[in-house]
């Protein structure tokens, strides 16, 4: 595949957006630690991905998924996070991609799973610096432009709108009834994190549904679960918990559809 063709692929779009955000954020924050972290996460992720593909005797493909996962992790974790923790988070993410699978596809979004695991084991905090949380408000435009381009390319608008709509309505209700901390969630840097998450993590093709109706349900469930966790406990990992629950729903649905198809085939063959 030529570079020109690769750029037009869904993964090409996301990889370019992540790389552009990395550069913009590094310049905006005047901090090169984030680039070092990104290099570490990508390197660790790619190495583990290649080794596992060799062990599983899979056909050679570009480890672009591991590159994207590494970049997302580096853009979310604080630039002050040690490179060992950043590397370990990327390794966890890639391990989940290879071992928590259904029909050879990952069940959980690797980056979200890795970050959740990293929070539980290393108590890592997320700064969402790659979503420009501490830069001027207008930098949100980068997220929106990049996000719309990616969502349009991979046909994931239904779940993005469903997720954002549900999240904002629930936060508005929380604000109106004075429940939890809706003030923060609707303003930078949290709103930057929510947009980044909706456009670039939620839309991961292998771990999210394809049909429009399923996308709407998936977006709604992820948003509802995440916002309820936020209302009850606050913190920053509510988006990842919501996504992992949404991924679990998608997996259970796929499994029940596949079981019912097997049963139907069995029923047809016994009645012939």
């Amino acid at each position: 595949m030529t570079l020109k063709k690769w750029i037009k692929t869904p993964k090409g779009y996301v990889a370019i957006a992540m790389f552009a955000f990395l550069i913009i954020a590094a310049i905006g924050y005047k901090d090169s630690h984030g680039i070092k972290n990104a290099f570490t996460a990508v390197f660790a992720g790619v190495i583990v991905d290649i080794i596992l593909n060799i062990i599983k005797r899979r056909k050679w493909t570009l480890p672009e998924g591991a590159v994207i996962t590494g970049l997302i992790i580096a853009l979310i974790l604080s630039t002050a996070t040690s490179i060992l923790v950043v590397g370990a988070t990327a390794v966890f993410a890639i391990l989940s991609k290879h071992f928590l699978v259904y029909k050879k596809k990952p069940i959980f979004n690797p980056a979200a799973f890795g970050l959740l695991f990293s929070f539980l084991f290393f108590k890592t905090g997320q700064s969402w610096w790659g979503a420009f949380g501490d830069l001027s408000v207008w930098t949100i435009l980068f997220l929106l432009v990049g996000g719309y381009m990616v969502a349009n390319r991979i046909h994931k608008f239904p779940q993005v709108f469903s997720f954002l709509g549900t999240t904002f309505v629930m936060l508005a209700l929380m604000g109106y009834f004075n429940i939890g901390d809706a003030v923060d969630a609707l303003r930078p840097p949290f709103i930057n994190g929510t947009l980044f998450f909706a456009f670039f993590m939620l839309t991961d093709p292998p771990t999210s549904p394809a049909k429009d109706k399923d996308q709407v349900i998936f977006g709604f469930l992820t948003a509802a679960a995440g916002t309820l966790v936020y209302a009850a406990f606050g913190g920053l990992i509510y988006l990842f918990i919501g996504l992992c629950l949404g991924n679990l729903y998608t997996y259970l649905k796929k499994r029940s559809v596949s079981k019912s198809m097997v049963n139907r085939k069995g029923f047809i063959s016994t009645h012939r």
């Binding site: 709108f161 809706a182 003030v183």
Partner: peptide, 21 residues
């Protein structure tokens, strides 16, 4: 249309929490 609806939901939330902010 959907973008407008999402923006409206966000705006209502933003203004309902503005006093507190």
């Amino acid at each position: 249309l959907c973008s407008t609806a999402v923006a409206a939901a966000y705006t209502s939330g933003f203004y309902s929490t503005e006093t507190q902010a």
